[in-house]
Structure formats: structure tokens, C-alpha cells
Write a protein that binds this DNA or RNA. Structure first.
Lengths: 156, 156
DNA sequence: TAAGACCTTGGAGTGCACTCCAGGCAAGTG
DNA sequence: CACTTGCCTGGAGTGCACTCCAAGGTCTTA
């Protein structure tokens, strides 16, 4: 292992940075990351990163003179945002749409805003749903209350 | 259409009833529902209902003398609960495990409780995740603020 | 300079949760 | 009694989001 342990893999770091234009350098001064470094940073697999690029979810990644990917801080910021979108449950196809809008320039900002607002509403609804399931879960867990080891028929 | 409109399909009714043993009759006095009636009640498709039975997620559905399924109020209650579990994001395989525990009798209550508690923790974590994405979404939407129609470069 | 870890590609495979199909039986209606 | 509608079955197909493979080129460390 040469590189992988530079950041712990299980905890996705993903500060709630958001980008497209503002790039704030990472720990070391570099602005060039191999795919496995990015995998470690983002918690996504290298497979997934290549796949994201294939389907148009990454806006052009630089290459070394030998053809290997060299991700920039901008790319990292973008991926952090994509990671957040993924957590919302937004379909990958919609994320691609969003990426295309970004690439198309400033005039698509209303559409992007609309897309994010729609996503926001989905998230709010999903949270409500989940909170509703918590009610049921708690009720049900309550009916099992005290059943820690051998229940042995609580009533009668 | 013979039956379908007896309940509106889009809103899943699924009162937060929970069962296994307590069955409280539905609107009309009957306790026999065809698969399409149940599909209308639960919002699940008839396909899904048959599939749930195949994989062991339904605890034996009665049949008419000609072999057609006749769901009972108990079944409906169970399905309402299954629907809630599905909303939690619990994998179907785990729901089957839960169903098997129920079938195995009272002595499995500690395991059932543990399963639901684990699910509860997943739900709580997922809610936190989603709330975190809301923060990012709101920030991002904020940067697009006022971009209702033509943005025309807000700064400079 | 050689081993071993790393990177490349297109395309195939995986797991989940449905979803549909073909072929056939059954029940109600003009 | 034909016709339409609904139900049955096993098995195949779908869509999503990865995930892996084979075959080969590259980079680093001893």
C-alpha cells in the first residue's frame, strides 16, 4: 500500500463544501490526485468514479501524459456535492442532467435551482415518511418491551 | 372497473395499525378480499403481493375453493406493517427474517425486538443524513437565489 | 531491472426489488 | 353461451447503481 492510508476510508469526509468555481486546496498543496486517492477521499470506489465519468457525471478529468486520471480540487468539490445529491436519493440520471446544466453555463441557473428545489421537497417528504415509520417502530418495540432474553409469556 | 375505485389508489392508507393478532374489521363487514382489492388498499401491485407470498413475506393466505387468494383483515394489517418496514428502507430479506421469527412464536420476541431496534437506528441515521443534505441543498439553492427566469450575472 | 502495486479500457456480471409474460382456469353478464 | 374480466402459475425480463473482469500499460521501490 502506497497511498491508501493517507485518509481513513470508512468515514466519508465530504465537508459540506459546494463548488463549481471555488476551489480551496487540500491538506498538502497539490492539486493532482490519482483515482485511488480520490476514492479514499470521497468514499466512492475507483470503479464508481470511472463510471461517473463515463456517464457524464464528471466534467472532464485531466490526464497525465500517460493517460492516467489526475483529479483536481475542483473535481473533489464537485464529487463532494455529487455525494450529497446521492444521499438525497436523487437518481443518477437526474444528477447527470444537473451536470449538463452546469456545463451549459450560467443561463441554466433557473433550471438548476428548480431541480434542487424539487429534490429538496422529495427530501422533506422522505424525512416525514421516515419519522412516521419511527412512530410505528417505537410502538412495536414497545409491545416487545422487557423482552430482553426469555419472554415466557408476559401476561396471564 | 369493478372494484378498484372503492378506495383511492394514490394515497396509501395504511393507518399505523400493527397486528399479528388484533384484527379490527374494515369498512364493510367482510373479512375476505381479492388480490386486486388488497392492491387498492395497500398501494402495492398484485404482482408484488404474489411475490411477497412466494418469498415468504406473507404468513399463508387463504384460498377460495377455486384457488384464488382471499386476504383477511389480519393479512391487511400485516401488509400495512410490511409497508412501513419497506418505507424504513429495510431490505426485503430482513423483512422475511422478521416474518419467520413471527411464525416461530413468542420465544423469538427478543430477536424481533432487536431487529426493529437496529432498523430504528438506521432510520434515525438516515434522517440525520437527509437533514444534512437539506443544509447543502439550501445553501446551493441560496446561491441561485433570484434566478427565477433570466439570471444575467448577479454580481459585477 | 524486476516484482508488485497501480492504472487503463470496453463490456459483462451482480443484487435488489420488483414487473411482466404466456398459457390457462373461473366467474359474471348480455 | 360467447365474451370480458379477473385470477392462477413458473419463469423470464427490467431498471437502477454499481461492480467486476480480462488484457494490457505504468509507476515505484529493492
Amino acid at each position: 500500500m502506497t497511498v491508501v492510508q493517507m485518509v481513513n476510508q470508512e468515514t466519508v469526509p465530504a465537508a459540506l463544501c459546494v463548488a463549481e468555481d471555488e476551489t480551496h486546496p487540500r491538506p498538502d498543496g497539490r492539486d493532482q490526485y490519482t483515482i485511488s486517492e480520490v476514492a479514499a477521499f470521497t468514499g466512492m470506489s475507483a470503479h464508481t468514479l470511472r463510471w461517473y465519468e463515463r456517464i457524464g457525471l464528471m466534467p472532464h478529468v485531466d490526464r497525465s501524459n500517460t493517460g492516467q486520471r489526475r483529479f483536481s480540487n475542483r473535481d473533489l468539490d464537485w464529487l463532494a456535492f455529487v455525494g450529497k445529491l446521492r444521499l438525497t436519493g436523487m437518481p443518477v440520471a437526474d444528477m447527470v442532467t444537473y451536470a449538463e446544466l452546469v456545463k451549459a453555463g450560467e443561463r441554466t441557473e433557473p433550471q438548476r435551482k428548480a431541480l434542487l428545489e424539487a429534490t429538496r421537497m422529495d427530501v422533506v417528504q422522505r424525512i416525514a415518511e421516515l419519522q412516521d415509520t419511527l412512530t410505528v417502530l417505537d410502538y412495536k418495540i414497545g409491545t416487545y418491551a422487557g423482552a430482553e432474553r426469555a419472554p415466557e409469556r408476559t401476561g396471564a
